[in-house]
Amino acid sequence: MSESIYYFLQQIANGLTIGSTYALIAIGYTMVYGIIGMINFAHGEVYMIGTYVAFIALAGLSMLGIDNPFLLIGIALAVSIVVASAYGFSIERVAYRPLRSSKRLIALISAIGMSIFLQNYIRLAQGSRDIAMPSMIKGGFLFGSPEGSHIMISYMQVIIMVTTVLCMVGLTLFITRSRMGRACRACAQDIGMTNLLGINSNNVIAVTFIIGASLAAVAGMLLGLYYGVVNPYIGFIAGLKAFTAAVLGGIGSIPGAMLGGLILGVSESLTGGYLTAEYKDVVAFSLLILILLFMPQGILGKPEVEKI
Protein backbone atom coordinates (compact mmCIF):
# COMPACT_ATOMS: atom_id res chain seq x y z
CA MET A 1 0.00 0.00 0.00
CA SER A 2 1.23 3.43 -0.73
CA GLU A 3 2.02 5.92 1.95
CA SER A 4 -0.93 8.18 1.18
CA ILE A 5 -3.41 5.38 1.76
CA TYR A 6 -1.86 4.70 5.16
CA TYR A 7 -2.19 8.38 5.93
CA PHE A 8 -5.81 8.41 4.85
CA LEU A 9 -6.63 5.35 6.95
CA GLN A 10 -4.85 6.85 9.96
CA GLN A 11 -6.99 9.96 9.66
CA ILE A 12 -10.12 7.83 9.32
CA ALA A 13 -9.19 5.92 12.48
CA ASN A 14 -8.62 9.17 14.37
CA GLY A 15 -11.91 10.50 13.06
CA LEU A 16 -13.81 7.39 14.13
CA THR A 17 -12.44 7.79 17.66
CA ILE A 18 -13.66 11.36 18.00
CA GLY A 19 -16.86 10.46 16.20
CA SER A 20 -17.60 7.66 18.67
CA THR A 21 -17.55 10.06 21.59
CA TYR A 22 -19.72 12.55 19.72
CA ALA A 23 -22.15 9.70 19.16
CA LEU A 24 -22.25 8.79 22.86
CA ILE A 25 -23.12 12.36 23.80
CA ALA A 26 -25.49 12.73 20.85
CA ILE A 27 -27.67 9.89 22.20
CA GLY A 28 -28.72 12.14 25.07
CA TYR A 29 -29.90 14.84 22.68
CA THR A 30 -31.64 12.51 20.33
CA MET A 31 -33.57 10.55 22.96
CA VAL A 32 -34.82 13.64 24.74
CA TYR A 33 -35.75 15.28 21.47
CA GLY A 34 -37.49 12.14 20.30
CA ILE A 35 -39.71 12.02 23.36
CA ILE A 36 -40.46 15.55 24.46
CA GLY A 37 -39.35 17.46 21.37
CA MET A 38 -36.96 19.84 23.07
CA ILE A 39 -33.24 20.46 22.75
CA ASN A 40 -31.61 19.70 26.08
CA PHE A 41 -29.02 22.40 25.68
CA ALA A 42 -27.48 21.58 29.08
CA HIS A 43 -26.55 18.04 28.04
CA GLY A 44 -22.99 19.00 27.13
CA GLU A 45 -22.52 20.24 30.69
CA VAL A 46 -23.56 16.85 32.03
CA TYR A 47 -20.73 15.35 30.01
CA MET A 48 -18.34 17.89 31.51
CA ILE A 49 -19.59 17.10 35.02
CA GLY A 50 -19.13 13.39 34.27
CA THR A 51 -15.47 14.01 33.49
CA TYR A 52 -14.94 16.00 36.68
CA VAL A 53 -16.54 13.33 38.84
CA ALA A 54 -14.50 10.63 37.11
CA PHE A 55 -11.30 12.56 37.84
CA ILE A 56 -12.29 13.14 41.44
CA ALA A 57 -13.09 9.46 41.88
CA LEU A 58 -9.88 8.32 40.15
CA ALA A 59 -7.73 10.64 42.22
CA GLY A 60 -9.55 9.68 45.43
CA LEU A 61 -9.32 5.96 44.80
CA SER A 62 -5.66 6.01 43.91
CA MET A 63 -5.01 8.00 47.07
CA LEU A 64 -6.74 5.20 48.97
CA GLY A 65 -4.15 2.85 47.51
CA ILE A 66 -6.12 1.05 44.79
CA ASP A 67 -3.80 0.58 41.85
CA ASN A 68 -5.45 -2.08 39.73
CA PRO A 69 -6.41 -0.03 36.65
CA PHE A 70 -9.53 -2.07 35.86
CA LEU A 71 -10.87 -1.78 39.38
CA LEU A 72 -9.97 1.89 39.44
CA ILE A 73 -11.69 2.68 36.16
CA GLY A 74 -14.67 0.46 36.97
CA ILE A 75 -15.44 2.13 40.30
CA ALA A 76 -14.79 5.62 38.94
CA LEU A 77 -17.11 4.93 36.02
CA ALA A 78 -19.86 3.76 38.36
CA VAL A 79 -19.52 6.83 40.57
CA SER A 80 -19.48 9.09 37.56
CA ILE A 81 -22.62 7.49 36.11
CA VAL A 82 -24.48 7.83 39.40
CA VAL A 83 -23.65 11.50 39.83
CA ALA A 84 -24.26 12.40 36.18
CA SER A 85 -27.60 10.61 36.30
CA ALA A 86 -28.53 12.60 39.36
CA TYR A 87 -27.74 15.74 37.38
CA GLY A 88 -29.72 14.58 34.36
CA PHE A 89 -32.69 13.74 36.56
CA SER A 90 -32.56 17.00 38.52
CA ILE A 91 -32.16 19.17 35.43
CA GLU A 92 -35.30 17.69 33.98
CA ARG A 93 -37.17 17.97 37.26
CA VAL A 94 -36.19 21.58 37.95
CA ALA A 95 -35.83 23.28 34.59
CA TYR A 96 -37.92 21.34 32.09
CA ARG A 97 -40.84 19.60 33.76
CA PRO A 98 -42.61 22.82 34.80
CA LEU A 99 -42.36 23.97 31.19
CA ARG A 100 -43.55 20.89 29.42
CA SER A 101 -46.73 22.50 28.19
CA SER A 102 -45.08 25.80 27.26
CA LYS A 103 -43.87 26.82 23.87
CA ARG A 104 -40.60 25.41 22.55
CA LEU A 105 -38.87 28.76 22.70
CA ILE A 106 -39.54 29.04 26.43
CA ALA A 107 -38.15 25.59 27.16
CA LEU A 108 -35.10 26.24 25.00
CA ILE A 109 -34.27 29.48 26.81
CA SER A 110 -34.59 27.65 30.11
CA ALA A 111 -32.20 24.99 28.80
CA ILE A 112 -29.67 27.60 27.71
CA GLY A 113 -29.94 29.21 31.13
CA MET A 114 -29.34 25.82 32.76
CA SER A 115 -26.27 25.29 30.60
CA ILE A 116 -24.80 28.67 31.55
CA PHE A 117 -25.65 28.03 35.20
CA LEU A 118 -23.97 24.61 35.35
CA GLN A 119 -20.86 25.78 33.55
CA ASN A 120 -20.37 28.64 35.99
CA TYR A 121 -21.28 26.52 38.98
CA ILE A 122 -18.42 24.16 38.13
CA ARG A 123 -16.15 27.11 37.41
CA LEU A 124 -16.80 28.49 40.88
CA ALA A 125 -16.67 25.10 42.60
CA GLN A 126 -13.58 23.67 40.91
CA GLY A 127 -11.81 26.68 39.40
CA SER A 128 -11.38 27.52 35.75
CA ARG A 129 -7.93 26.01 35.34
CA ASP A 130 -7.26 22.90 33.33
CA ILE A 131 -7.11 19.88 35.58
CA ALA A 132 -4.74 17.29 34.22
CA MET A 133 -4.43 13.57 34.82
CA PRO A 134 -1.48 11.43 33.71
CA SER A 135 -2.31 8.78 31.13
CA MET A 136 -3.15 5.39 32.63
CA ILE A 137 -3.35 3.21 29.54
CA LYS A 138 -0.38 3.50 27.25
CA GLY A 139 0.69 1.91 24.01
CA GLY A 140 -1.22 0.75 20.96
CA PHE A 141 -1.47 -1.42 17.87
CA LEU A 142 0.74 -0.80 14.89
CA PHE A 143 -0.20 -1.90 11.38
CA GLY A 144 2.43 -1.76 8.65
CA SER A 145 6.16 -1.45 9.07
CA PRO A 146 7.32 0.43 12.17
CA GLU A 147 10.08 2.12 10.19
CA GLY A 148 8.14 3.00 7.05
CA SER A 149 4.50 3.86 6.55
CA HIS A 150 2.14 2.51 9.15
CA ILE A 151 -1.04 3.14 11.04
CA MET A 152 -0.92 3.55 14.78
CA ILE A 153 -4.03 3.05 16.86
CA SER A 154 -3.61 3.45 20.60
CA TYR A 155 -5.29 1.09 23.08
CA MET A 156 -7.27 4.03 24.36
CA GLN A 157 -8.67 4.69 20.88
CA VAL A 158 -9.69 1.05 20.62
CA ILE A 159 -11.31 1.14 24.05
CA ILE A 160 -13.30 4.23 23.05
CA MET A 161 -14.60 2.68 19.85
CA VAL A 162 -15.42 -0.69 21.41
CA THR A 163 -17.20 0.88 24.39
CA THR A 164 -19.27 3.04 22.09
CA VAL A 165 -20.37 0.09 20.02
CA LEU A 166 -21.24 -1.88 23.18
CA CYS A 167 -23.27 1.03 24.56
CA MET A 168 -25.12 1.39 21.28
CA VAL A 169 -25.96 -2.31 21.11
CA GLY A 170 -27.09 -2.30 24.73
CA LEU A 171 -29.23 0.76 24.23
CA THR A 172 -30.83 -0.64 21.08
CA LEU A 173 -31.69 -3.86 22.93
CA PHE A 174 -33.11 -1.86 25.80
CA ILE A 175 -35.28 0.24 23.51
CA THR A 176 -36.53 -2.61 21.37
CA ARG A 177 -36.81 -5.46 23.91
CA SER A 178 -37.52 -4.13 27.37
CA ARG A 179 -40.80 -2.98 28.82
CA MET A 180 -39.41 0.43 29.64
CA GLY A 181 -38.01 0.71 26.14
CA ARG A 182 -41.43 0.08 24.72
CA ALA A 183 -42.85 2.75 27.00
CA CYS A 184 -40.18 5.14 25.69
CA ARG A 185 -41.19 4.45 22.14
CA ALA A 186 -44.82 4.91 23.04
CA CYS A 187 -44.09 8.29 24.59
CA ALA A 188 -42.19 9.32 21.47
CA GLN A 189 -45.33 8.60 19.48
CA ASP A 190 -47.87 10.33 21.68
CA ILE A 191 -47.41 11.31 25.30
CA GLY A 192 -51.07 11.99 25.98
CA MET A 193 -52.15 8.64 24.68
CA THR A 194 -49.44 6.86 26.62
CA ASN A 195 -50.70 8.44 29.80
CA LEU A 196 -54.20 7.29 29.05
CA LEU A 197 -52.91 3.75 28.70
CA GLY A 198 -51.67 3.81 32.27
CA ILE A 199 -48.00 4.47 31.72
CA ASN A 200 -46.57 7.24 33.85
CA SER A 201 -44.91 9.38 31.21
CA ASN A 202 -43.10 11.41 33.87
CA ASN A 203 -41.18 8.29 34.86
CA VAL A 204 -40.41 7.48 31.24
CA ILE A 205 -39.05 10.96 30.65
CA ALA A 206 -36.99 10.78 33.82
CA VAL A 207 -35.52 7.47 32.65
CA THR A 208 -34.69 9.02 29.29
CA PHE A 209 -32.75 11.80 30.97
CA ILE A 210 -30.96 9.33 33.22
CA ILE A 211 -29.92 7.14 30.27
CA GLY A 212 -28.71 10.15 28.32
CA ALA A 213 -26.74 11.42 31.31
CA SER A 214 -25.21 7.98 31.95
CA LEU A 215 -23.94 7.74 28.39
CA ALA A 216 -22.59 11.27 28.66
CA ALA A 217 -20.77 10.17 31.82
CA VAL A 218 -19.29 7.20 29.95
CA ALA A 219 -18.11 9.58 27.25
CA GLY A 220 -16.76 11.92 29.93
CA MET A 221 -14.81 9.11 31.57
CA LEU A 222 -13.38 7.84 28.26
CA LEU A 223 -12.40 11.24 26.96
CA GLY A 224 -11.03 12.19 30.36
CA LEU A 225 -8.71 9.19 30.22
CA TYR A 226 -7.86 9.77 26.55
CA TYR A 227 -7.06 13.48 26.67
CA GLY A 228 -6.28 13.71 30.37
CA VAL A 229 -7.63 17.24 30.71
CA VAL A 230 -10.82 18.78 31.97
CA ASN A 231 -12.00 22.36 32.43
CA PRO A 232 -15.46 23.86 32.90
CA TYR A 233 -15.71 24.91 29.27
CA ILE A 234 -15.32 21.57 27.50
CA GLY A 235 -19.04 20.81 27.76
CA PHE A 236 -20.22 23.66 25.61
CA ILE A 237 -18.31 22.85 22.46
CA ALA A 238 -18.63 19.08 22.89
CA GLY A 239 -22.37 19.50 23.36
CA LEU A 240 -22.61 21.62 20.26
CA LYS A 241 -20.71 19.08 18.20
CA ALA A 242 -22.79 16.22 19.56
CA PHE A 243 -25.96 18.10 18.81
CA THR A 244 -24.72 18.65 15.28
CA ALA A 245 -24.10 14.92 15.05
CA ALA A 246 -27.62 14.16 16.28
CA VAL A 247 -29.16 16.52 13.74
CA LEU A 248 -26.93 15.21 10.99
CA GLY A 249 -28.04 11.65 11.56
CA GLY A 250 -31.66 12.60 12.02
CA ILE A 251 -32.72 13.74 15.46
CA GLY A 252 -34.81 11.22 17.31
CA SER A 253 -33.07 8.26 15.70
CA ILE A 254 -30.51 6.30 17.73
CA PRO A 255 -28.63 4.71 14.79
CA GLY A 256 -28.75 8.18 13.27
CA ALA A 257 -26.87 9.62 16.23
CA MET A 258 -24.17 6.99 15.80
CA LEU A 259 -23.90 7.63 12.07
CA GLY A 260 -23.97 11.41 12.49
CA GLY A 261 -21.26 11.27 15.12
CA LEU A 262 -18.98 9.18 12.94
CA ILE A 263 -19.52 11.37 9.87
CA LEU A 264 -18.80 14.49 11.86
CA GLY A 265 -15.70 13.00 13.49
CA VAL A 266 -14.27 11.78 10.20
CA SER A 267 -14.96 15.03 8.38
CA GLU A 268 -13.25 17.00 11.16
CA SER A 269 -10.28 14.70 11.10
CA LEU A 270 -9.98 14.92 7.32
CA THR A 271 -10.20 18.71 7.46
CA GLY A 272 -7.35 18.70 9.97
CA GLY A 273 -5.39 16.18 7.94
CA TYR A 274 -5.77 17.61 4.44
CA LEU A 275 -6.67 21.27 4.91
CA THR A 276 -5.86 23.02 8.13
CA ALA A 277 -7.01 22.40 11.68
CA GLU A 278 -8.03 26.00 12.29
CA TYR A 279 -11.07 25.59 10.02
CA LYS A 280 -12.26 22.38 11.70
CA ASP A 281 -15.12 24.06 13.52
CA VAL A 282 -16.12 26.06 10.45
CA VAL A 283 -16.45 22.80 8.52
CA ALA A 284 -18.49 21.22 11.31
CA PHE A 285 -20.94 24.13 11.52
CA SER A 286 -21.17 24.53 7.75
CA LEU A 287 -21.98 20.85 7.48
CA LEU A 288 -24.79 21.35 10.00
CA ILE A 289 -26.22 24.32 8.12
CA LEU A 290 -26.08 22.52 4.78
CA ILE A 291 -27.68 19.36 6.11
CA LEU A 292 -30.49 21.34 7.71
CA LEU A 293 -31.10 23.24 4.50
CA PHE A 294 -31.23 20.30 2.17
CA MET A 295 -32.28 17.44 4.45
CA PRO A 296 -34.04 19.03 7.41
CA GLN A 297 -34.93 15.60 8.77
CA GLY A 298 -31.30 14.41 8.74
CA ILE A 299 -29.92 11.25 7.17
CA LEU A 300 -31.92 8.63 9.02
CA GLY A 301 -34.68 10.78 10.47
CA LYS A 302 -38.32 10.71 9.57
CA PRO A 303 -39.81 13.86 8.11
CA GLU A 304 -41.87 15.58 10.74
CA VAL A 305 -45.48 16.30 10.00
CA GLU A 306 -46.77 19.41 11.66
CA LYS A 307 -49.95 18.67 13.52
CA ILE A 308 -52.55 21.31 13.92
Binding site: E3, Y7, Q10, Q11, N14, G15, T17, I18, L223, Y227, V229, Y233, I234, I237, E268, S269, L270, T271, G272, G273, T276, A277, E278, K280, D281
Partner: peptide
Protein backbone atom coordinates in the same frame (compact mmCIF):
# COMPACT_ATOMS: atom_id res chain seq x y z
CA UNK B 1 3.24 26.40 9.40
CA UNK B 2 -0.23 25.88 10.76
CA UNK B 3 -2.74 27.14 13.29
CA UNK B 4 -4.90 25.09 15.64
CA UNK B 5 -7.94 26.08 17.67
CA UNK B 6 -7.19 27.13 21.24
CA UNK B 7 -9.27 25.06 23.64
CA UNK B 8 -9.41 22.11 21.28
CA UNK B 9 -8.69 18.68 22.74
CA UNK B 10 -8.08 16.44 19.78
CA UNK B 11 -4.88 16.85 17.84
CA UNK B 12 -4.62 13.37 16.36
CA UNK B 13 -5.16 14.74 12.85
CA UNK B 14 -2.33 17.22 13.37
CA UNK B 15 0.00 14.58 14.80
CA UNK B 16 -0.64 12.27 11.86
CA UNK B 17 0.13 15.15 9.53
CA UNK B 18 3.39 15.90 11.35
CA UNK B 19 4.35 12.24 11.07
CA UNK B 20 3.56 12.18 7.39
Amino acid sequence: FEGITAGDKDFSALVAKLKR
